[in-house]
């Protein structure tokens, strides 16, 4: 799948993730996409290399009094002796829809999602992330449309299953659509299959229709 992805994350996002500056919801998007996309993984790891170079560079030793405490290494060995084993995250099963970072938030794969209907056949599930941005899963029935909306901030939508198209382009599994203030769009799921997406926003969407706008405070979208 990884070679078919044609809509990637921006360098700005990857740099911010690498430097540890992104909020939790957007970090979840980056981690989920990178799990599927070798292009962005390589790009991200090259930005990590900048962090490594800084850790190795001459900008750090000028911090005074950074010597570790004299018994630090003994303390570490004591910790290691107490609990030598380290559990690793179980590998994702082949037919899972969600990459591991997303499964961590859902508590399992697709079957574990607690969907809530939001009207017109659409369903969503808000994921537990820190304030400042929202992450949610979207379920768009085959052929259905998400109401016309524009955005106050940035919205990233990544396809996990199925596909959707809007006025600008089409998006398949792993593809990320980036929409900001200037974009008003009506994403429509492909007719062949229900579409499941991860969407993150750093500001509530602005819906054009009156009904979705009235619902917005309740739907938290």
């Amino acid at each position: 799948m990884t070679e078919k992805i044609k809509h990637h994350l921006s360098d700005d996002l990857l740099i911010a993730y690498s430097a540890g500056l992104l909020n939790e919801a957007f970090s979840l998007m980056v981690a989920t996409h990178v799990s599927l996309c070798d292009t962005c993984r390589a790009q991200l790891e090259s930005f990590d290399a900048v962090g490594g170079a800084i850790l190795e560079g001459d900008g750090l030793p000028d911090v005074p009094h950074v010597a570790m405490s004299p018994d630090a290494i003994e303390a570490i060995f004591a910790t290691i002796d107490l609990a030598p084993a380290q559990e690793t995250r179980a590998a994702r099963r082949k037919d899972d829809v969600f990459p591991a970072p997303l499964q961590d938030y859902v508590g399992g794969d697709l079957a574990s999602v607690k969907w809530r209907p939001v009207g017109m056949g659409l369903k969503q599930a808000i994921l537990p992330t820190a304030k400042g941005a929202t992450a949610r899963l979207l379920y768009i029935p085959a052929g259905a449309a998400v109401p016309d909306h524009s955005h106050n901030g940035t919205e990233l939508t990544m396809v996990l299953k199925g596909a959707f198209s809007d006025e600008y382009d089409s998006f398949g599994p792993g593809d990320v659509e980036t929409a900001d203030q200037d974009v008003t769009h009506t994403p429509v799921a492909d007719i062949s299959e229900d579409c499941i997406c991860l969407a993150v926003t750093d500001a509530p969407l602005k819906f054009k229709g009156i009904i979705p706008r009235m619902l917005q405070p309740f739907l938290r979208i």
Binding site: G20, V30, E45, A53, L55, A100, P101, Y105, A130
Partner: peptide, 28 residues
Amino acid sequence: ASVATWIFTIARNRRIDMLRRQRRPEPE
């Protein structure tokens, strides 16, 4: 990755944990 890069990523994740008290989603 170089060893420095690898250690940087561990330290960065720990920093987010420590200063922001947020989870840090990591790629597979």
